[in-house]
Design a binder for these strands. Sequence first.
DNA 1: GGCCGAATCCCTCTTTCGGGGGATTATCAT
DNA 2: ATGATAATCCCCCGAAAGAGGGATTCGGCC
Lengths: 212, 212
Amino acid sequence: MKPNTPAKILVVDDHYIVRAGLRGLIDQQPDMKVEGEAQNGEEAIRIFKELNPDVTIMDLRIPVISGVDAIRAIYRDHPDARILVLSSFDGDEDIHSALEAGASGYVLKHSSGDQIIPAIRALMSGHRWIPPEIEKHLDARNQGETLTTREREIVGLLAQGEANKQIAGLIGITEETVKSHVKNILAKLKVRDRTEAVTVALRRGIVHLPEV
Amino acid sequence: MKPNTPAKILVVDDHYIVRAGLRGLIDQQPDMKVEGEAQNGEEAIRIFKELNPDVTIMDLRIPVISGVDAIRAIYRDHPDARILVLSSFDGDEDIHSALEAGASGYVLKHSSGDQIIPAIRALMSGHRWIPPEIEKHLDARNQGETLTTREREIVGLLAQGEANKQIAGLIGITEETVKSHVKNILAKLKVRDRTEAVTVALRRGIVHLPEV
DNA sequence: GGCCGAATCCCTCTTTCGGGGGATTATCAT
DNA sequence: ATGATAATCCCCCGAAAGAGGGATTCGGCC
């Protein structure tokens, strides 16, 4: 590391205040500097290309293109990208997807500055940064079984209040098959009915409410 | 106003980064200064008493005691408190409750600094600050009918996946009465079934998911 | 005193859910 | 090839949900 050329940081968050907070925090450090900001996933991808930052700090709940999808897109073109997810606790599924999509670290928004800065430095030097409490959650997640693609799709439709018959029509399968899937979903999520299935799926980040 | 004694600001948010951003932004202004920070509703109430700030900036989604309840508690003891809600868009119900509980202003977290500072100044000088887009939402809310206390309570239980019979047992009324309430809820929210009712209620801020 | 809204309870009837099975393909990794 | 998994479809059956009525009580408000 050269102390005379601070690491280039890209900050991605839709809240101005959060970006301002990060900028203030980071620019105080001698070895890093915020060189770019993006407010949504689309911007993030574009600005990453232009800037080629050393570390990208990314919120997951961002408009236009989700944080996870943005990470995936960036990682595809730049497999050496160092992306640090900075998020409130968004549910196991999001964390897991983010790491799978190519993120190298995860920090909670609740974290104080002296927890965030070391995370950035870790990524700068090529290391990963996953706090133990996050890893514990990922393990816990594996206890509960994972939903398949089809099942996740159906949970999304459940959340919209669709009946089995409607779902069948929408995705072109039989109502009987939908019932099978729903049965499996209830069993996997260990819930009593479709309504609880939806709230559990929302908490785990398996599905999201459409933006308000 | 005396330019030599800056207004005392209390910042309430559970995210360190947000507090840091606000502190940086505010302390740049000559006429205001962050004199206190709180991470949850309980702290907010306590620190408000000690500090008696000129303006309090409050997030709604905070632990222990919700922002709305904290505002209510503070307002009860200090009817002259100036509280500015700073929140991502949390649904009509939360905004409405916050204002009803005693907040004097509302600013979105997306807002940039030159939108937040004027809001603080407005409250400092005793004015209210409700952006037009927020007021529009409050009007829109009134188009759709309002749920009664009982109905909101039942929506909360629906979100937990309780069946009508369980709900009846839990709150000590007949299953028939629960069905009546559910029927009215579906009609008021203009949805097809209880599952959709829950997701709509979540989006509107009528109920919340238990914290992750 | 009369009115209205909230909350309660009741009945009928049809549809939908969810639990309990079982079965068949296709794919993919071993 | 063999096994595992995902995805599909099928049947039965009892319980729950929702649509459509109607009715009562209790307060507060005008």
